[in-house]
Design a protein around this nucleic acid. Structure first.
Length: 231
DNA sequence: ACCCAGGGTCATA
DNA sequence: TATGACCATGGG
């Protein structure tokens, strides 16, 4: 994967889907903290479910780390609709404890990206992808989020064939992208998710409605035609 | 009745 | 290091 291929993909995604305005938040007072919560809640869980859990949390009280910690053992019930809620309640409270103990945004904003990333990952339940999502959307750091959608799309475009190792794809894309603004990675990830949801579903292995085919919004793409298909 | 979702951890071998 | 089980609710 080189810069031309990556830029070409980005341009086609942008043309097809336009600005995604991520990360979606509902809290006008402290949207940044809500991103941390949403990043944990959305682990292996549909975003529609996360919205419900966040709405329940907001109805219960302020979305602050202290409030979430104070819920104690009743936090799981408040986020019940977000998939594995018992585990996620613990992860949220671990993250809240870390956030408070490390001085909140005021202090965290001053830390170098690599250091901040390592600190986030030291929390149980915060893996590489969740850490990068938080870095991009809550801390405006330029990181590529190498999620399952990214692997699926890059594989189907012939831009990735190695094993699905998170750091490998992240480094490869960041290398190809070159020096970029956080907004670029913000939009790139959101566009990949938008495209995956629209026409790269998991159960369509041949990618019949994906960008390799004329019927898709990506039809004008410049990548090589599919083998066995008329040019 | 399945498969899947904006993952991560832990126990095995 | 590399799989598999597990979490657990709701939509397609």
């Amino acid at each position: 994967m080189d810069a031309r291929q990556l830029d070409g993909l980005y341009a086609r995604l942008w043309r097809a889907y336009g600005p995604q305005n991520w990360w979606p938040t509902t809290d006008v007072d402290n949207p940044r903290f809500e991103i941390l919560i949403g990043a944990v809640l959305t682990q292996h869980t549909a975003w529609t479910q996360v919205e419900k859990a966040i709405a329940t949390l907001r109805a219960a009280g302020p979305m602050t780390p202290d409030a979430l910690l104070a819920y104690g053992q009743q936090l799981p019930e408040l986020i019940r609709e977000a998939g594995p809620h018992n585990i996620k309640a613990k992860r949220l409270q671990t993250l809240c404890r870390w956030f408070v103990d490390n001085g909140g945004f005021e202090v965290l904003d001053a830390r170098a990206t690599g250091d901040l990333r390592a600190a986030l990952k030291s929390c149980r339940g915060i893996g590489p992808e969740t850490a990068d999502a938080i870095l991009v959307y809550a801390f405006d750091r330029p990181q590529f989020i190498a999620d399952a959608y990214a692997f699926r799309i890059f594989e189907r475009l012939g831009l990735w064939s190695a094993p699905r190792h998170y750091e490998s794809l992240r480094e490869c894309v960041e290398q190809a992208a070159g020096p970029r603004d956080s907004q670029h990675f913000n939009e790139l990830h959101a566009l990949l998710v938008a495209h995956a949801k629209r026409c790269c579903r998991k159960r369509v292995p041949a990618c019949l409605e994906c960008c390799l085919y004329d019927r898709c919004a990506f039809a004008a793409s410049q990548h090589a035609p599919r083998p066995g298909r008329a040019t």
